[in-house]
Design a protein around this nucleic acid. Structure first.
Length: 420
DNA sequence: TCTGGGGTCCTAGGACCC
DNA sequence: TCTGGGGTCCTAGGACCC
């Protein structure tokens, strides 16, 4: 059996934790640049706000009706997430952290020795009491079914936040009431395709022949069908699995024409990406940079420009990565466009051990490079001061908007909440 | 005025090999 | 009329996820 534990309206719940005065008030959290709605408290959901809706479209109405809004505060959410995951790991060491706010627990090793209902409520209560975040729990024979159970636990108040699907008959009955687009892994395109051949609910899908569906559509669908039938076949994404790519990209606070300012933004992202790469203990060989205009603005000429460069030896040196990113930018920049976003993608990783040696030239970052980067990271992590590279610039005219951010209550000594 | 960011996996098709 | 067969590897792009 698998349990899926998922925090309810996670970002909004994090904000509410530190603002007891907002209890029972609608609270939402916005994406970067205060662009879209990405988390809604139950009260905000009732007001009809939907996920991903542009903020400017709902702003007036929402605020007029007493809604509360926050810019995203990832430092806070990441810290709260760690606390939740630590508790879950204690309860079940076979844990697969799937995203910032949800995790699968593999309950197989418990066999029949636990009362699943008891287990679910223990989890739920402990996280509520120790951290302060409400969670929902779905337990079922496969991950796909656990996902569905979780969804029902969230949506139907009668279950009090926990749904356990065990009995075969019960599962069939349950699947019949589920639309296929609610199934994990079935997106919009697949929904349309399946609807067109008359498959509308999860029970119908589970009765389709997996092999045949696999060859007519794709293997992902085949796996999903098997999972719906109670046969686990979606692998764990082992927690220690190294990343395969690292991306840093941001929309700008306002659009940019100047090559110079663009260069600062790209350098800044490149520096951040290099930092992430070092924390992953990886080195990369391929660097891709892209710049683009705002696709929503129909009045301007659109551009999406990108290119990549391979570096001779795998590196995690910020200087090399920033320099390469700038060379790519030189190639892709076109005069006369308004750019609204830039990004960098690092890929082709080689773990620190086990390099491919190059025939000519050096194969490794030099000792000097390693030492320098370690020192820079040391200083930056501890915020003794903030070191950056000249290219990264100081103007920051492109930085994103985050006008209504809450405090970093748990990670900044100056921002710890005080009682009056 | 104003529309996020970071990932994974799969597939089709091209290049290349014998 | 008619132009092999079987493979691998790589990449770009699609679909999906939170």
């Amino acid at each position: 059996m698998y349990a899926l534990v998922d925090c309810n309206s996670f970002y909004a719940s994090c904000e509410k934790m530190f603002r007891p005065d907002l209890k029972n008030h609608p609270v939402i959290v916005l994406s970067n640049n205060d662009g879209c709605v990405i988390a809604r408290s139950p009260e905000a959901k009732k007001m009809g706000l939907s996920m991903g809706q542009p903020w400017y479209q709902v702003k007036k109405n929402y605020l007029d009706n007493g809604g509360i809004v926050f810019s995203s505060n990832y430092e806070l959410y990441a810290d709260i997430s760690n606390r939740v995951m630590n508790i879950l790991t204690e309860l079940c060491p076979e844990i697969d952290i799937y995203s910032i706010d949800e995790a699968f627990l593999n309950l197989h090793s418990y066999k029949n020795n636990i009362d699943l209902v008891q287990f679910a409520f223990d989890c739920k209560n402990r996280i509520r009491d120790w951290v302060g975040i409400p969670v929902s729990i779905g337990i079922a024979p496969t991950r796909t079914l656990a996902k569905l159970a979780n969804r029902v636990a969230k949506e139907d108040a009668r279950f009090d936040g926990a749904v356990i699907l065990e009995d075969k008959k019960m599962i069939c009955h349950f699947l019949e009431s589920v639309q296929i687009e609610k199934i994990w892994g079935i997106g919009k395109k697949m929904t349309d395709k399946l609807n067109s051949i008359g498959i509308r609910n999860a029970l119908q899908l589970s009765k389709a022949e997996p092999r045949l569906m696999g060859s007519n559509f794709n293997v992902l669908l085949e796996r999903t069908i098997r999972e719906l039938r109670g046969q686990p076949c979606i692998e764990t994404n082992n927690l220690s699995e190294p990343k395969k790519q690292i991306m840093v990209s941001r929309s700008f606070g306002k659009s940019i024409k100047s090559r110079e300012v663009l260069r600062e933004a790209v350098s800044f992202h490149a520096g951040r990406a290099a930092e992430k790469l070092r924390f992953e203990g990886q080195k990369c060989r391929l660097i891709t940079v892209f710049i683009r205009s705002n696709p929503f603005n129909k009045k301007i000429n659109q551009i999406y420009s990108s290119n990549f460069m391979e570096i001779a030896h795998a590196t995690s040196d910020s200087r090399i990565i920033i320099k390469t990113a700038n060379n790519i930018l030189q190639k892709i920049y076109r005069e006369g466009f308004e750019y609204s976003k830039a990004g960098i993608l690092l890929s082709n990783f080689t773990e620190k051990l086990g390099y491919q040696m190059t025939l000519f030239g050096k194969s490794f970052d030099s000792k000097e490079s390693e030492n320098l980067m370690r020192t820079v990271d040391y200083i930056n992590i501890r915020e003794i001061s903030y070191l950056f590279f000249g290219n990264q610039g100081y103007r920051n005219t492109w930085k994103m908007k985050r006008h209504i951010k809450s405090k970093r209550y748990t990670t900044k000594i100056e921002e710890i909440p005080l009682t009056k």
